[in-house]
Simulated scan of single mutants.
Amino acid sequence: MSFDAPAKVLMLAALSEIAAGGALMIAPGMLVLVLLGIERSSMSEALGRFVGIALLALGIACWPARGRAQGASAAYRAMLIYNPLVALYLACLGAIAHVGGVLLWPVVALHVLITLLLVAVRRRTL
Rank of each mutant, 00 (worst) to 15 (best):
F3Q: 13
V9T: 10
V9D: 02
L10D: 05
A14Q: 04
A14W: 11
S16R: 01
I18K: 11
A19G: 07
G21K: 09
A23V: 11
L24C: 09
M25T: 08
M25V: 05
A27E: 06
P28M: 03
P28F: 03
P28T: 01
G29F: 05
G29T: 08
G29N: 07
L33S: 14
V34N: 14
S41R: 09
S41N: 03
S41T: 14
S42E: 07
E45S: 09
A46Y: 09
A46L: 15
V51K: 08
V51H: 02
G52K: 10
A57M: 06
A57Y: 11
G59Q: 08
I60D: 02
W63Y: 15
W63N: 10
P64A: 12
P64Q: 12
P64C: 10
A65L: 10
G67Q: 07
G67K: 08
R68L: 07
R68I: 13
A69K: 13
G71L: 04
A72K: 00
Y76S: 02
R77W: 10
M79I: 06
L80D: 00
I81P: 00
P84I: 07
L85H: 06
V86A: 12
L88D: 05
A91S: 11
G94E: 01
G94F: 10
A95P: 00
A95M: 11
G101H: 05
G101A: 11
V102Q: 13
L103P: 00
W105M: 15
W105D: 07
W105F: 14
P106V: 12
V108E: 03
V108G: 05
A109K: 05
V112C: 05
L113C: 10
L113H: 03
L118W: 03
A120E: 06
R122Y: 15
T125I: 04
T125A: 09
